[in-house]
C-alpha cells in the first residue's frame, strides 16, 4: 500500500458517499445516470468475486464489501425508492455498445484464460468506460448539480491517483500490470474535459455549465 493508492481509495469512497448523500438528502436522483450505476455494480460484482476465497487484508475486504453494497444500494435508491425522480429521458446511452466490446476484449486480452481472471479483466475494461453514460447525460442536460460535479470529480480523481500508485510500484516494487494501467489511463482521460470544466467553473463557485 502506498499514499497514492490510499488517497485513491479514499477519493473513491468519498465519491460514493457524496452520491448516496445527494440522493438521500435531496430525495432525488435527478442528473444521475442509472445506467452508469448499473455498470459500476457490474464492475464491482465481477471484480470482487475473490472476496471470500482470497483474503488479502481487512482493509481490502471491508472496501470490497463497501463498494459492492453501496453500488447495489444506489441502484435500489434510483430504480425503486426514488424511481419517480429518475430522469429516463436524458439517460439514454446504449450500454450494449460498451458491454459487447468490453466482453470481447476481456476474452481476447487477459493474463489468464480462467473464469475469475476473465471476469476481473472484463471488470477492469468495463470500469474504464462505465462513466460514459453519466458524462453523456451531463452533456445532454447541459449542466449538473454542484454536488454531482463533486461526485464526478472524486470518482475521476480516484483512478488518476491510481496511475501515480502504478508509477510508484513500478519504480519501488518492480511491479506493473499493463491491463490495469492502460484501462486506468483511458478511464482518467475520459474525465479530462470534465476536470477542466470542474476546475475552471465549479471551484470558482459557478455552476457546471457545458458550452451549449
Amino acid at each position: 500500500m502506498n499514499v497514492f493508492r490510499l488517497a485513491g481509495d479514499l477519493s473513491h469512497l468519498l465519491a460514493i458517499i457524496i452520491l448516496l448523500l445527494k440522493i438521500w438528502k435531496t430525495r432525488s436522483c435527478a442528473g444521475i445516470s442509472g445506467r452508469s450505476q448499473i455498470l459500476f455494480a457490474l464492475v464491482y460484482t465481477t471484480r470482487y468475486l475473490d472476496l471470500f476465497t482470497n483474503f488479502i487484508s481487512l482493509y481490502n475486504s471491508v472496501m470490497k464489501v463497501f463498494f459492492i453494497s453501496t453500488s447495489c444500494a444506489t441502484i435500489y435508491l434510483m430504480y425503486v425508492k426514488f424511481k419517480a425522480t429518475y430522469d429516463h429521458n436524458h439517460d439514454t446511452f446504449r450500454i450494449g455498445f460498451l458491454l459487447i466490446p468490453v466482453t470481447i476484449l476481456g476474452l481476447l486480452i487477459n493474463h489468464d484464460f480462467t473464469p475469475l481472471e476473465v471476469l476481473w479483466t472484463f471488470s477492469i475494461y468495463l470500469e474504464s468506460v462505465a462513466i460514459l453514460p453519466q458524462l453523456f447525460m451531463v452533456s445532454k442536460t447541459g449542466d449538473a448539480e454542484t454536488i454531482t460535479s463533486h461526485y464526478l470529480f472524486c470518482l475521476g480523481l480516484y483512478r488518476a491517483l491510481y496511475i501515480f500508485n502504478w508509477i510508484y510500484r513500478y519504480y519501488f516494487e518492480g511491479f506493473y500490470d499493463l491491463i490495469a494501467i492502460v484501462a486506468g489511463v483511458v478511464q482518467t482521460v475520459l474525465y479530462c474535459d470534465f476536470f477542466y470544466l470542474y476546475v475552471t467553473r465549479v471551484i470558482k463557485g459557478k455552476a457546471l455549465k457545458l458550452p451549449a
Binding site: 473513491h12 482470497n54 481472471e117 511491479f175 490495469a180
Partner: peptide, 10 residues
Amino acid sequence: LVEQKSKDEL
C-alpha cells in the same frame, strides 16, 4: 521486472 497481477488492488 515481472508483470504481475494487481490482485491486491481494489
